[in-house]
């Protein structure tokens, strides 16, 4: 049974005087309880919009969300009213953001921000809330939590800020955690620590997690199932093992090939994917990745490719492995 079942999620941004932009275009995936799934793709592929749409955090104007996202066989997150969502946010589903500094209120001490969540969902106040907040900071590995509670966000280091945000997100033991590039704004050494912490917390609480990232290294160490997004659509979906063993879509392949390797010969050039996400083709006309694809065929631009291939599915007419 799936904890979250996203079906045909589509987010269109548009206004009276601008052309519609399909930021997310029919994305479907499911998250089972306790499972970690990855949404991978480069900037502008729709991964953050997906997470904001699921949380109901998109601005009220200028966008249209369609599709279904059934949480726990009950509520459709995309169509339910804000009141229900407010009750669910933080308690059932919580989110961790990219930039810990701007995600914390600069003029309010950490302690107030943590206890606020406890007061909202667990009815804790005063000394009890403070004790619990202290325990939470301790749990996410912040040393001297008693002192830290009184400090302001700018007095904490980047890693510590992200830990504080994680503490707030897991304060009510939500069943689903959405992590939107939680390590992008951090030093490499801190990144590993934060990922380790997330892994540990998710494991301890049995929380399911959607990890949104552009970093395949992150998903490799963390996710059970991976969805690769390009221009708003899932282009490849597979278990971690299968995806890394056999990247099938040329985009996934390109992402993996572009990672610099320790064992490559010095002087070897890096292998970037040529072009940028801006060079996309609208999906209705064919494969959006076609303009940048090294395996492009004429049939690629004859119409949108379908997602094929069973458990390890891909959206490509000329995938890797097809000719060998």
């Amino acid at each position: 049974m799936a904890l979250l079942n996203v079906e045909d999620l589509t987010v269109v941004f548009g206004g009276k005087d601008r052309a519609d932009v399909r930021a997310v275009d029919g994305v479907s995936f499911e998250v089972r309880a306790g499972e970690v799934i990855g949404l991978v793709g480069e900037s502008g592929c729709g991964k953050s919009v997906t997470s904001l749409a699921l949380m109901g955090l998109l601005p009220p104007k200028g966008n249209k969300v369609t599709g279904k996202a059934i949480f726990d066989d009950g509520v459709n997150l995309l169509s339910t009213d804000q009141r229900t969502l407010r009750d669910m946010r933080g308690r059932e589903i919580a989110m961790i953001f990219q930039d810990p500094l701007s995600s914390l209120n600069p003029v309010v001490p950490i302690g107030v921000q943590v206890t606020e969540v406890l007061a909202r969902h667990r009815g804790m106040t005063g000394e009890r809330a403070r004790k619990e907040a202290e325990a939470l900071l301790d749990r996410v590995g912040i040393p001297d939590p008693r002192r830290r509670l009184k400090e302001y966000p700018h007095q904490l280091s980047g890693g510590m800020r992200q830990r504080a945000l994680i503490a707030m997100a897991v304060a009510c033991r939500p069943r689903l955690l959405i992590a939107d590039e939680p390590t992008t704004a951090l030093d490499v050494t801190i990144q590993a620590q934060i990922l380790e912490l997330l892994k540990e917390l998710v494991h301890q609480d049995g929380t399911a997690m959607i990890m949104i990232t552009h970093d395949l290294g992150v998903v490799a160490g963390l996710c059970d199932w991976i969805n690769v997004l390009y221009a708003g659509r899932v282009v490849e979906t597979a278990s971690r093992h299968s995806l890394f063993a056999q990247p099938t879509h040329p985009y996934t392949h390109g992402l993996l090939a572009s990672i610099p390797r320790l064992d490559s010969v010095r002087g070897d050039r890096l292998n970037p994917i040529p072009g940028s996400v801006r060079d996309l083709l609208p999906w209705v006309e064919g494969c959006a990745f076609a303009p940048r694809c090294e395996r492009v065929l004429e049939s690629c631009v004859e119409g949108p490719p379908a997602l094929v291939g069973g458990a390890h599915a891909y959206r490509c007419v000329n995938p890797f492995g097809a000719d060998s």
């Binding site: 933080g90 921000q113 606020e116 969540v117 997100a169």
Partner: peptide
């Protein structure tokens, strides 16, 4: 947005 995502009223 972050506070909203935690359900703060």
């Amino acid at each position: 947005v972050a506070a909203t995502s935690l359900g703060v009223g």
